[in-house]
Protein backbone atom coordinates (compact mmCIF):
# COMPACT_ATOMS: atom_id res chain seq x y z
CA UNK A 1 0.00 0.00 0.00
CA UNK A 2 2.91 2.34 0.76
CA UNK A 3 4.11 2.06 -2.82
CA UNK A 4 0.60 2.79 -4.03
CA UNK A 5 0.37 5.90 -1.85
CA UNK A 6 3.77 7.15 -3.01
CA UNK A 7 2.75 6.58 -6.60
CA UNK A 8 -0.47 8.51 -6.10
CA UNK A 9 1.40 11.36 -4.47
CA UNK A 10 3.74 11.52 -7.45
CA UNK A 11 0.73 11.46 -9.78
CA UNK A 12 -0.58 14.47 -7.88
CA UNK A 13 2.35 16.67 -8.93
CA UNK A 14 1.39 16.99 -12.63
CA UNK A 15 -2.25 17.34 -11.61
CA UNK A 16 -1.42 20.25 -9.32
CA UNK A 17 0.81 21.77 -11.95
CA UNK A 18 -2.00 21.53 -14.47
CA UNK A 19 -4.47 23.11 -12.05
CA UNK A 20 -1.99 25.90 -11.45
CA UNK A 21 -1.56 26.56 -15.14
CA UNK A 22 -5.32 26.58 -15.73
CA UNK A 23 -5.94 28.90 -12.75
CA UNK A 24 -3.19 31.20 -13.91
CA UNK A 25 -4.48 31.28 -17.49
CA UNK A 26 -8.10 31.82 -16.46
CA UNK A 27 -7.24 34.54 -13.99
CA UNK A 28 -5.07 36.51 -16.36
CA UNK A 29 -7.53 36.01 -19.19
CA UNK A 30 -10.02 38.08 -17.21
CA UNK A 31 -7.70 40.36 -15.21
CA UNK A 32 -4.54 42.06 -16.30
CA UNK A 33 -1.88 43.18 -13.80
CA UNK A 34 -3.05 46.73 -14.58
CA UNK A 35 -6.56 45.82 -13.44
CA UNK A 36 -5.16 44.36 -10.24
CA UNK A 37 -3.17 47.51 -9.58
CA UNK A 38 -6.22 49.70 -10.15
CA UNK A 39 -8.29 47.54 -7.84
CA UNK A 40 -5.74 48.02 -5.08
CA UNK A 41 -4.94 51.65 -5.71
CA UNK A 42 -8.56 52.74 -5.99
CA UNK A 43 -10.64 54.29 -8.73
CA UNK A 44 -9.94 57.97 -8.15
CA UNK A 45 -6.92 59.90 -9.33
CA UNK A 46 -4.72 56.89 -10.10
CA UNK A 47 -1.80 57.76 -12.33
CA UNK A 48 -0.17 55.37 -14.85
CA UNK A 49 3.09 55.89 -12.96
CA UNK A 50 1.55 54.64 -9.72
CA UNK A 51 0.22 51.58 -11.55
CA UNK A 52 3.64 50.81 -13.00
CA UNK A 53 5.28 51.13 -9.60
CA UNK A 54 2.65 48.93 -7.95
CA UNK A 55 3.30 46.21 -10.53
CA UNK A 56 7.03 46.58 -10.20
CA UNK A 57 6.94 46.20 -6.44
CA UNK A 58 4.89 43.04 -6.63
CA UNK A 59 6.65 41.49 -9.62
CA UNK A 60 3.69 41.88 -11.96
CA UNK A 61 5.79 43.93 -14.38
CA UNK A 62 7.39 40.74 -15.66
CA UNK A 63 6.02 38.78 -18.63
CA UNK A 64 3.33 36.30 -17.60
CA UNK A 65 4.75 32.96 -18.77
CA UNK A 66 7.71 33.48 -21.07
CA UNK A 67 10.37 36.16 -20.81
CA UNK A 68 12.04 36.56 -24.19
CA UNK A 69 14.29 39.31 -22.87
CA UNK A 70 16.12 36.84 -20.67
CA UNK A 71 18.31 33.99 -21.70
CA UNK A 72 18.48 30.36 -20.68
CA UNK A 73 16.45 29.35 -17.68
CA UNK A 74 15.74 33.03 -17.04
CA UNK A 75 13.14 32.90 -19.80
CA UNK A 76 11.04 30.69 -17.55
CA UNK A 77 12.18 31.83 -14.11
CA UNK A 78 11.81 35.57 -14.69
CA UNK A 79 8.05 35.38 -15.18
CA UNK A 80 4.96 36.04 -13.13
CA UNK A 81 3.98 32.38 -13.37
CA UNK A 82 7.22 31.13 -11.88
CA UNK A 83 7.22 33.80 -9.19
CA UNK A 84 3.66 33.43 -8.12
CA UNK A 85 2.54 29.92 -8.88
CA UNK A 86 5.46 27.53 -8.72
CA UNK A 87 6.55 28.68 -5.28
CA UNK A 88 3.39 27.20 -3.88
CA UNK A 89 4.81 23.72 -4.34
CA UNK A 90 7.13 24.69 -1.51
CA UNK A 91 4.03 25.91 0.39
CA UNK A 92 5.22 29.50 0.05
CA UNK A 93 1.92 31.28 -0.37
CA UNK A 94 3.40 34.72 0.11
CA UNK A 95 1.40 37.81 0.90
CA UNK A 96 -1.99 38.91 -0.32
CA UNK A 97 -2.23 42.16 -2.23
CA UNK A 98 -3.32 43.89 0.97
CA UNK A 99 -0.12 42.76 2.69
CA UNK A 100 -1.50 39.97 4.87
CA UNK A 101 0.42 36.71 5.17
CA UNK A 102 -1.74 34.19 3.33
CA UNK A 103 -0.54 31.14 5.29
CA UNK A 104 -1.38 32.84 8.59
CA UNK A 105 -4.73 33.96 7.25
CA UNK A 106 -5.55 30.41 6.17
CA UNK A 107 -4.62 29.08 9.60
CA UNK A 108 -6.80 31.69 11.31
CA UNK A 109 -9.78 31.11 9.06
CA UNK A 110 -9.68 27.34 9.08
CA UNK A 111 -11.19 27.21 12.58
CA UNK A 112 -14.40 29.10 11.82
CA UNK A 113 -14.89 27.11 8.61
CA UNK A 114 -14.45 23.83 10.45
CA UNK A 115 -16.70 24.99 13.30
CA UNK A 116 -19.60 25.17 10.86
CA UNK A 117 -18.68 22.46 8.39
CA UNK A 118 -17.72 19.62 10.76
CA UNK A 119 -20.95 19.49 12.81
CA UNK A 120 -23.01 19.98 9.66
CA UNK A 121 -21.11 17.18 7.97
CA UNK A 122 -21.28 14.59 10.72
CA UNK A 123 -24.77 15.37 12.00
CA UNK A 124 -25.96 15.48 8.43
CA UNK A 125 -24.31 12.16 7.65
CA UNK A 126 -25.94 10.55 10.68
CA UNK A 127 -29.36 11.88 9.74
CA UNK A 128 -29.12 11.07 6.04
CA UNK A 129 -27.88 7.53 6.69
CA UNK A 130 -30.55 6.89 9.32
CA UNK A 131 -33.33 8.25 7.14
CA UNK A 132 -31.95 6.47 4.09
CA UNK A 133 -31.99 3.20 5.99
CA UNK A 134 -35.46 3.98 7.34
CA UNK A 135 -36.87 4.71 3.90
CA UNK A 136 -35.27 1.57 2.57
CA UNK A 137 -36.76 -0.41 5.43
CA UNK A 138 -40.22 1.04 4.71
CA UNK A 139 -39.81 0.71 0.97
CA UNK A 140 -43.05 0.75 -1.00
CA UNK A 141 -45.01 2.07 1.96
CA UNK A 142 -46.43 5.53 2.64
CA UNK A 143 -43.35 6.33 4.76
CA UNK A 144 -41.06 5.73 1.82
CA UNK A 145 -43.38 7.54 -0.57
CA UNK A 146 -43.73 10.68 1.51
CA UNK A 147 -40.09 10.50 2.48
CA UNK A 148 -39.04 10.57 -1.16
CA UNK A 149 -41.55 13.37 -1.83
CA UNK A 150 -39.98 15.35 1.03
CA UNK A 151 -36.52 14.68 -0.40
CA UNK A 152 -37.52 15.85 -3.87
CA UNK A 153 -39.14 18.98 -2.41
CA UNK A 154 -36.04 19.66 -0.33
CA UNK A 155 -33.82 19.20 -3.39
CA UNK A 156 -35.94 21.59 -5.42
CA UNK A 157 -35.51 24.47 -3.02
CA UNK A 158 -32.56 26.78 -3.45
CA UNK A 159 -29.98 26.85 -0.69
CA UNK A 160 -30.47 30.62 -0.58
CA UNK A 161 -34.06 30.02 0.50
CA UNK A 162 -32.91 27.87 3.40
CA UNK A 163 -30.41 30.50 4.44
CA UNK A 164 -32.66 33.53 4.21
CA UNK A 165 -35.70 31.64 5.54
CA UNK A 166 -33.67 30.15 8.37
CA UNK A 167 -32.28 33.50 9.37
CA UNK A 168 -35.71 35.05 9.29
CA UNK A 169 -37.63 32.33 11.11
CA UNK A 170 -35.09 31.10 13.66
CA UNK A 171 -33.12 34.30 14.15
CA UNK A 172 -35.62 37.07 13.54
CA UNK A 173 -39.07 35.62 14.24
CA UNK A 174 -38.33 33.17 17.04
CA UNK A 175 -35.28 35.06 18.33
CA UNK A 176 -33.52 31.83 19.23
CA UNK A 177 -30.03 32.45 17.83
CA UNK A 178 -28.21 35.41 16.28
CA UNK A 179 -29.12 36.09 12.68
CA UNK A 180 -25.44 36.25 11.74
CA UNK A 181 -22.02 36.82 13.22
CA UNK A 182 -19.26 34.84 14.84
CA UNK A 183 -17.44 34.63 18.12
CA UNK A 184 -14.47 32.68 19.31
CA UNK A 185 -14.44 30.20 22.19
CA UNK A 186 -17.44 28.49 23.75
CA UNK A 187 -19.80 31.25 22.66
CA UNK A 188 -19.25 30.20 19.04
CA UNK A 189 -21.96 27.54 19.34
CA UNK A 190 -24.67 30.20 19.22
CA UNK A 191 -23.42 31.38 15.83
CA UNK A 192 -22.68 27.95 14.45
CA UNK A 193 -25.91 26.14 15.22
CA UNK A 194 -28.05 27.88 12.59
CA UNK A 195 -25.66 27.72 9.62
CA UNK A 196 -24.84 24.11 10.54
CA UNK A 197 -28.55 23.21 10.75
CA UNK A 198 -29.19 24.92 7.44
CA UNK A 199 -26.22 23.06 5.97
CA UNK A 200 -27.79 19.79 7.12
CA UNK A 201 -31.20 20.76 5.77
CA UNK A 202 -29.77 21.98 2.48
CA UNK A 203 -28.22 18.61 1.65
CA UNK A 204 -30.98 16.55 3.19
CA UNK A 205 -32.92 15.80 -0.02
CA UNK A 206 -30.11 14.82 -2.32
CA UNK A 207 -28.06 12.86 0.21
CA UNK A 208 -30.95 10.94 1.77
CA UNK A 209 -32.25 9.91 -1.64
CA UNK A 210 -28.78 8.83 -2.70
CA UNK A 211 -28.24 6.71 0.41
CA UNK A 212 -31.74 5.26 0.14
CA UNK A 213 -30.85 4.06 -3.36
CA UNK A 214 -27.65 2.43 -2.07
CA UNK A 215 -29.52 0.72 0.73
CA UNK A 216 -32.36 -0.44 -1.53
CA UNK A 217 -29.77 -2.18 -3.69
CA UNK A 218 -28.44 -3.98 -0.66
CA UNK A 219 -31.65 -4.71 1.17
CA UNK A 220 -32.91 -7.06 -1.54
CA UNK A 221 -29.80 -9.20 -1.49
CA UNK A 222 -29.61 -12.79 -0.32
CA UNK A 223 -27.53 -12.12 2.77
CA UNK A 224 -30.26 -9.84 4.13
CA UNK A 225 -32.88 -12.53 3.60
CA UNK A 226 -30.56 -15.01 5.29
CA UNK A 227 -30.08 -12.68 8.24
CA UNK A 228 -33.80 -12.29 8.62
CA UNK A 229 -34.25 -16.03 8.40
CA UNK A 230 -31.72 -16.37 11.19
CA UNK A 231 -33.97 -14.18 13.32
CA UNK A 232 -31.79 -11.06 13.52
CA UNK A 233 -33.61 -7.89 14.46
CA UNK A 234 -34.15 -5.30 11.74
CA UNK A 235 -31.92 -2.85 13.61
CA UNK A 236 -29.10 -5.31 13.58
CA UNK A 237 -29.68 -6.18 9.92
CA UNK A 238 -29.76 -2.56 8.85
CA UNK A 239 -26.95 -1.14 10.93
CA UNK A 240 -24.68 -4.15 11.11
CA UNK A 241 -25.05 -5.65 7.65
CA UNK A 242 -26.78 -3.41 5.15
CA UNK A 243 -24.92 -0.29 6.22
CA UNK A 244 -21.56 -2.04 6.11
CA UNK A 245 -22.17 -3.52 2.68
CA UNK A 246 -23.36 -0.21 1.25
CA UNK A 247 -20.23 1.50 2.51
CA UNK A 248 -18.22 1.47 -0.74
CA UNK A 249 -20.51 3.81 -2.70
CA UNK A 250 -21.13 5.90 0.44
CA UNK A 251 -17.42 6.32 1.09
CA UNK A 252 -16.86 7.40 -2.51
CA UNK A 253 -18.86 10.51 -1.85
CA UNK A 254 -18.16 11.02 1.83
CA UNK A 255 -14.41 10.65 2.27
CA UNK A 256 -13.58 12.84 -0.68
CA UNK A 257 -15.71 15.55 0.90
CA UNK A 258 -13.89 15.53 4.23
CA UNK A 259 -10.86 17.60 3.13
CA UNK A 260 -13.23 20.19 1.72
CA UNK A 261 -14.57 20.89 5.18
CA UNK A 262 -11.51 23.09 5.53
CA UNK A 263 -12.52 25.20 2.58
CA UNK A 264 -15.89 26.06 4.08
CA UNK A 265 -19.13 27.08 2.44
CA UNK A 266 -18.89 30.06 0.11
CA UNK A 267 -22.46 31.38 0.35
CA UNK A 268 -23.17 30.22 3.89
CA UNK A 269 -20.12 31.97 5.28
CA UNK A 270 -20.95 35.14 3.40
CA UNK A 271 -24.53 35.28 4.69
CA UNK A 272 -23.74 34.30 8.24
CA UNK A 273 -20.66 36.46 8.57
CA UNK A 274 -18.45 33.46 9.33
CA UNK A 275 -14.82 34.53 8.88
CA UNK A 276 -13.83 31.30 7.21
CA UNK A 277 -11.96 30.24 4.12
CA UNK A 278 -15.05 30.30 1.93
CA UNK A 279 -15.60 33.99 2.41
CA UNK A 280 -11.83 34.51 2.06
CA UNK A 281 -11.94 32.95 -1.40
CA UNK A 282 -15.00 34.94 -2.46
CA UNK A 283 -13.43 38.20 -1.25
CA UNK A 284 -10.22 37.41 -3.12
CA UNK A 285 -12.09 36.77 -6.34
CA UNK A 286 -14.04 40.00 -5.95
CA UNK A 287 -10.94 42.02 -5.20
CA UNK A 288 -8.90 40.32 -7.97
CA UNK A 289 -6.29 39.20 -5.47
CA UNK A 290 -4.45 36.61 -7.50
CA UNK A 291 -2.15 35.68 -4.64
CA UNK A 292 -5.09 34.46 -2.55
CA UNK A 293 -7.05 32.96 -5.43
CA UNK A 294 -4.13 30.80 -6.58
CA UNK A 295 -3.40 29.73 -3.02
CA UNK A 296 -6.97 28.69 -2.34
CA UNK A 297 -7.27 26.85 -5.66
CA UNK A 298 -3.96 25.11 -4.95
CA UNK A 299 -5.11 24.06 -1.49
CA UNK A 300 -8.49 23.00 -2.88
CA UNK A 301 -6.89 20.79 -5.51
CA UNK A 302 -4.40 19.42 -3.01
CA UNK A 303 -7.24 18.51 -0.66
CA UNK A 304 -9.16 16.96 -3.52
CA UNK A 305 -6.23 14.75 -4.44
CA UNK A 306 -5.84 13.87 -0.76
CA UNK A 307 -9.55 13.10 -0.54
CA UNK A 308 -9.38 10.73 -3.48
CA UNK A 309 -6.41 8.97 -1.95
CA UNK A 310 -8.18 8.68 1.38
CA UNK A 311 -11.22 7.28 -0.39
CA UNK A 312 -9.13 4.56 -1.98
CA UNK A 313 -7.54 3.74 1.34
CA UNK A 314 -10.90 3.66 3.07
CA UNK A 315 -12.11 1.03 0.60
CA UNK A 316 -9.52 -1.34 1.95
CA UNK A 317 -10.76 -0.74 5.47
CA UNK A 318 -14.41 -1.55 4.77
CA UNK A 319 -13.92 -4.24 2.17
CA UNK A 320 -11.12 -6.72 2.75
CA UNK A 321 -11.36 -7.84 -0.87
CA UNK A 322 -10.02 -4.51 -2.08
CA UNK A 323 -6.25 -4.44 -2.46
CA UNK A 324 -4.29 -1.36 -3.49
CA UNK A 325 -1.44 -2.12 -5.79
Amino acid sequence: MIRYIIRRILYAIPILLGVNIITFALFFLVNTPDDMARMQLGAKRVTPDAIERWKQERGYDKPLIYNDKESGIGRIVQTVFFDKSLRMFAFEFGRADDGRDIAREIRMRMGPSLAVAVPAFFVGLLIYLTLGLGFAFFRATYVDFWGVVACVVAMSISSMFYIIGGQYVIGKLWNLVPVSGFSGGFDAWRFVVLPAAIGVLGSFGASTRLYRTFFLEEIGRDYVRTARAKGLSEVAILFRHVLKNAMIPILTGVVVAIPFLFIGGLITESFFGIPGLGSYTIDAINSQDFAVVRSMVFIGSLLYVAGLLLTDISYTLVDPRVRLS
Binding site: I164, Q167, Y168, G171, K172, N175, P178, V179, S180, G181, S270, F271, F272, G273, P275, S279
Partner: peptide, 18 residues
Protein backbone atom coordinates in the same frame (compact mmCIF):
# COMPACT_ATOMS: atom_id res chain seq x y z
CA UNK B 1 -18.11 47.62 13.22
CA UNK B 2 -19.14 44.08 12.30
CA UNK B 3 -18.52 42.58 8.89
CA UNK B 4 -21.94 42.11 7.31
CA UNK B 5 -21.65 41.40 3.63
CA UNK B 6 -25.28 40.72 2.89
CA UNK B 7 -28.06 43.24 3.19
CA UNK B 8 -30.76 40.85 4.44
CA UNK B 9 -29.09 39.81 7.72
CA UNK B 10 -27.97 43.40 8.21
CA UNK B 11 -31.53 44.62 7.88
CA UNK B 12 -32.89 41.92 10.20
CA UNK B 13 -30.32 42.80 12.85
CA UNK B 14 -31.18 46.46 12.56
CA UNK B 15 -34.83 45.66 13.17
CA UNK B 16 -33.81 43.62 16.21
CA UNK B 17 -31.87 46.60 17.55
CA UNK B 18 -28.45 45.07 17.06
Amino acid sequence: FTLEKESIPRWNKFLQGY
